[in-house]
Amino acid sequence: MRIAMISPLWGPAYPTGSGIYAYELAKRMAEQGHEVHAFTSQIGNFNGMLLPKNLHLRVLRTYSMLWDMNPIANVLPILLREDFDVVHVHSYIFYMSNSTAAARLLKDFRYVLNFHGGISHSAIQDSCSRRLWIKDNVYDRTLGRATVALADKVLSVSKADIPLIRRAFGVDAQYIPNAVSIEDFKPGEKGAQRITYVGKLEKWKGVETLLEIFRQVRHEIRDAEFQIIGDGSLADKMRKADLPIIMRGHIPHENMPAQYRDSAVSVLPSFMEGAPTTCMESLACGVPCVATRVGDTPEIVKDGHSGFLVEPGDVSESASHIVELMENDSLRRRMGAEGREHMVNHYSYEAVVERMLKAYEET
């Protein structure tokens, strides 16, 4: 099968949940003998990237980055010029998704569109509401609706988003879950016992809440250390905080397992998620997670078993659970072991790739 895998941000170059998912699918399909052409923007670091024989990475000229999240790169001419059995696009909100839909309007191919969250945002802070109002009331009703309507099959990594996709766009999405590379992300020798956040440094990720959580934890545990992996518009604010925060910026994805293993707890205070990759990677490494009850996070982090769930914006409850885990080694080990088992049993890429190829054939 000749497959075009379109991801505006490519996992190993610029780690995001959807980009990592696209990369892992493309790599594993290529290893099975399929001819996979991955199209992405120039955003990120592509140096020293090793790819399997049948995976062809094609980095497109990128003209700008809209709202610090949407690379403007045009895949339309290539899709009109070349033939693919399946064109699989990750997320509906990107310019590359729109140009794929335009190509489908002009040419017959199997167009598969994958949602990666961003539909449910009822808990979002008012400070993020302007962009979301534009998305909901302008983009989703015009270009977004057309991008979804032209798809031959719509997929979602989040169960929670399926009724919302139906309500917003009038289509039935098929659930194929997010996944984690359990061969790479696994428990190992522990190093420093830090409290770790992985993700974009933006308001909708709850980063301002994160600072308050860190302050409360520091009040209870004076020698607590924190690390932040990622970048974004609030990076300077985090750097200037009067807290012992190690700011890592972006780290190559192959180095991430070691970062989780150097953590006692991971934390995700988001106001909006689909099926968060960072929680899955943390649990696969045997590190319990304290996260907000949004999107499919409750499917991933089992409250009281592999971590704790809190309501978005709840600083005191989040800090209390982190302190509890930091001070109780046996609880932390038990939750880490349960989290690892849950990832192995339900979120391996082996099962997801099999389901994805079947979805292609049924399109």
Rank of each mutant, 00 (worst) to 15 (best):
F109K: 01
C279M: 03
I20S: 07
K135V: 12
A149E: 10
L210V: 10
Y197E: 01
I3P: 07
S181C: 11
H34R: 03
V171T: 04
T277V: 05
P276Y: 13
A101P: 08
P52F: 00
F39N: 04
W204C: 03
F39Q: 13
P52I: 02
I119R: 03
E212Q: 08
Q42T: 00
S7Q: 06
A168W: 15
R2G: 07
M96P: 02
L55E: 09
S158E: 06
S320V: 08
V267L: 01
K203A: 15
Q42R: 07
L132K: 14
A275L: 06
L55I: 12
G118L: 09
L25P: 00
F185E: 04
A192M: 02
R239Q: 10
M65W: 08
A291T: 12
S99Y: 11
H219D: 05
E212T: 13
R261T: 00
T363D: 03
V265M: 05
G19I: 12
S233V: 15
G44E: 03
V315Y: 10
V154S: 06
I6M: 11
E31K: 02
E208Y: 14
A264Y: 15
N114K: 14
H305M: 13
L150H: 02
R81D: 06
K53T: 15
D329T: 12
I6C: 05
T277A: 12
